[in-house]
Amino acid sequence: MSESAQQGPPPAARGAGRDRDEQGRARNARPRDGLGRPLPYGAAGVTRQAEGVIRSPQETLAEAQRLLDAGRPFHAHEVFEDRWKSAPEPERELWRGLAQYAVGLTHAARGNTAGATALLARSAAALAAFAPDPPYGIDAAGLARWAADRAGAPGEVSPPAPPRLRG
């Protein structure tokens, strides 16, 4: 076992109960697997998305699609979450719906049918609102329809493959 695995959380987290950044905000420093599940301190995990990265809508969609294509929906959710937090108010529900979509895919990949169903249903409702005039080439109608179909058929949350973010 590595020395860091024996020691537990990094010094910044000891006594505080949670990992914190320099500003005192909660940040989980534990390594994670490809589906975002926390691993023990000292374990080898996958490279995580940096938090708080400001990307353009096009950069957000490209990076999230790359992560979805690589089977890393949890990490795509983090990219969408950064955009959701930094987007102008009229777009926040769009990015939140896309983040929920990615979390729904994460739950499905982890075998959590109840979580997948709930998040995909929320995502479908949020994305459907943007279907009449979808920004940035996002296939809001297709994503909403797919998410609603999967949420309505809990035993079939994973198949078929989800549609691409842009039509």
Rank of each mutant, 00 (worst) to 15 (best):
R25I: 10
E93S: 10
V53P: 00
D82Y: 07
A13F: 05
A161T: 12
P31A: 06
D69K: 13
I54H: 14
A16Y: 08
A131L: 03
G97A: 11
A125W: 05
E156C: 15
T113R: 11
A16I: 11
I138E: 07
D21L: 05
N28C: 11
H77C: 07
R122D: 14
A99Y: 04
A131T: 03
A121I: 13
N112G: 10
D149W: 11
A124N: 08
A126R: 06
S4R: 14
W146H: 14
A16L: 14
G104Q: 09
A129W: 05
Q58K: 13
A43M: 10
P88M: 12
H107Q: 03
E59S: 09
A128P: 09
G45S: 04
G42I: 03
T106F: 02
P132I: 12
F80P: 00
Q6V: 14
R166P: 12
E78Q: 02
P9W: 02
A128I: 08
R110P: 09
R110N: 03
E22M: 06
A108S: 13
A5Y: 09
G42P: 02
Y101D: 04
G36W: 02
G152K: 15
P154W: 10
P88A: 15
Q58E: 10
D21K: 07
G36K: 00
R25M: 07
R25Q: 15
G104P: 06
P135I: 10
G8E: 02
D33Q: 11
G45L: 01
P159E: 04
R150V: 08
R27C: 08
T113L: 06
S158V: 15
H77T: 00
D19N: 07
A140E: 07
A109V: 02
E156Y: 12
L143S: 00
S4C: 14
R164S: 08
R27I: 13
A148R: 10
A151T: 06
A99K: 00
V103W: 01
A102P: 02
G137D: 01
G155W: 08
G137E: 02
S4D: 15
V79I: 08
A141G: 01
M1C: 15
W95N: 00
L105K: 11
G142Q: 05
P132Q: 05
L143H: 00
A26G: 12
Q100T: 01
R27L: 13
G34A: 12
P73R: 00
K85I: 13
L35T: 08
G137Q: 06
E3R: 14
A43F: 01
L67F: 10
G155Q: 01
P73K: 05
V79K: 00
V157I: 14
E91N: 04
P11C: 08
A76Y: 06
P38Q: 06
P163D: 13
A13D: 08
A116P: 01
P57D: 03
L39G: 10
Q7N: 15
A114K: 13
R66E: 14
A87V: 04
R96Y: 05
P132K: 04
A5R: 12
N28R: 09
P162M: 07
D133C: 04
A124G: 05
E78I: 00
S4E: 13
A50P: 12
V46K: 00
P57K: 07
Q100W: 05
P31V: 04
M1S: 15
H107R: 14
R96L: 14
